[in-house]
Design a protein around this nucleic acid. Structure first.
Lengths: 226, 226
DNA sequence: ATTTCGCAAACTGCATGCAAAGGGTCGCTA
DNA sequence: TAGCGACCCTTTGCATGCAGTTTGCGAAAT
């Protein structure tokens, strides 16, 4: 689902890293519901390893804000309420806006073409009758990932990891909504245009707007549910 | 070796957390020099525990950017060059400015008085002949910590942990410098004034200026060393 | 029937055993 | 003598044993 991102988890890398990646996917993918308890033994069996690397992965996921790890009481999947999501998206808006600002001056022509290609694919997909939500989500992740990495700031990238994990149900709700989908894809084009003209300020503003727009949509959706 | 040595040593908190805190202190304090290898067995002996919680602490410290953890090659203390510090301070400037912005609307009168009291102590200390650098550093950390926590944003706090760890030698260089010390303490007063008048924008700008000023000083110091 | 208490099973977190990979050293070759 | 390769010791990362704590269930008392 993330295409070529980490297709090859095997060449080098510890068992704990594999568990971390897979478990992260599973949690974001909604395989474990918020509040659910994550028992190390069961996870160890699932991932074909022992409890030690599982524990290490849980510690990492706590750092990402995806699980809560209380001493002597184990790990539970973190639950998100509206306030959490707003908090998360506002920090993300700041950091990704900065990333876009930096990326505007550093993206290569090839990177820019790749971003446009990602937009093309997402739009033609959205334009056709059937919408593969999984692919849209993957496209979106890829789009943001490229820009963040192009910022060239390791600290920014690390900081963004603490606000990167959004449960898939929210993403699905987002991309299922036709209006938001159109708006979001159009925002991506705006961002690429700004990046292409090397306008750091414009890229920053466009990215901030994009993330804050998503925030507002999620507030709305959360509001309807209660 | 372990026996019942630590009967009441952990009323709350795991052994791994203690190792994390202490080792973090030790690294920031310069007890381990950049590039130095951190062997788990030696650390386990030092902290009176086994290798498992030590490894857990190392994983956490990698998340904080204080150690590098290469598979099968162990952990080494991360070294900072000028570019790293600039990167770190620029992300920190963004995040702490945002924290100040939020804190301006949330700090209680007691918090504000406590911030002023911290400034008082630091200034009277700096005014007197002998300057206890350790205490100045502690005051500064406390000042920033109070504001970040008052932001009320868990994600912001978490993100700041990824840029919080600055080796003490840099801090010492900073607070040893009379001009920077004066400037910094004055900046703290400015920030408190902005916070007290609930001016979010002013607090944000003041904090950004404060952190970026520190960045520039460190660039200068690093430049002189090479 | 509801609440409280206690017991037992389950689970967490730490300690330690063990196989495999790395780095260093020494000897060998040219 | 310099360069190269093989071997050994150290160290890591995973597996598992173990003790202490939490949790869930059931019985007793009100």
């Amino acid at each position: 689902m993330q295409l070529m991102a980490n297709a090859v988890t095997h060449p080098v890398g510890t068992s704990a890293e594999r568990v971390y990646d897979d478990l992260r996917e599973a949690i974001i993918g909604g395989e474990y519901t918020p509040g659910e308890r994550l028992r190390t033994e069961a996870l160890a069996e699932r991932f074909g390893t022992s409890r030690t690397p599982v524990r290490e992965a849980l510690v990492l996921l706590e750092g990402d804000g995806l699980v809560e790890l209380e001493p002597r009481r184990g790990a539970v999947v973190r639950s998100f309420d509206a306030a959490d999501l707003v908090d998360l998206y506002e920090v993300r808006a700041i950091l990704e806006a900065r990333a876009a600002q930096l990326a505007a001056l550093r993206l290569t022509r090839e990177d820019l073409d790749a971003l446009d290609a990602t937009c093309d694919r997402a739009e033609s997909m959205a334009g056709s009758g059937k919408v593969a939500i999984e692919t849209l989500i993957a496209s979106n992740d890829e789009f943001h990932r490229v820009i963040v990495e192009a910022s060239g700031s390791a600290r920014l990238t690390a900081a963004l990891r603490t606000v990167a994990g959004i449960p898939r149900p929210f993403k699905v709700a987002f991309w299922k909504n036709g209006a938001e989908r159109t708006r979001s894809l159009s925002a991506h084009r705006e961002i690429v245009a700004a990046l292409r003209s090397r306008s750091a300020e414009r890229a920053e503003s466009a990215m901030r707007l994009h993330v804050l727009t998503a925030r507002d949509f999620l507030i709305e959706v959360m509001g309807e549910r209660h």
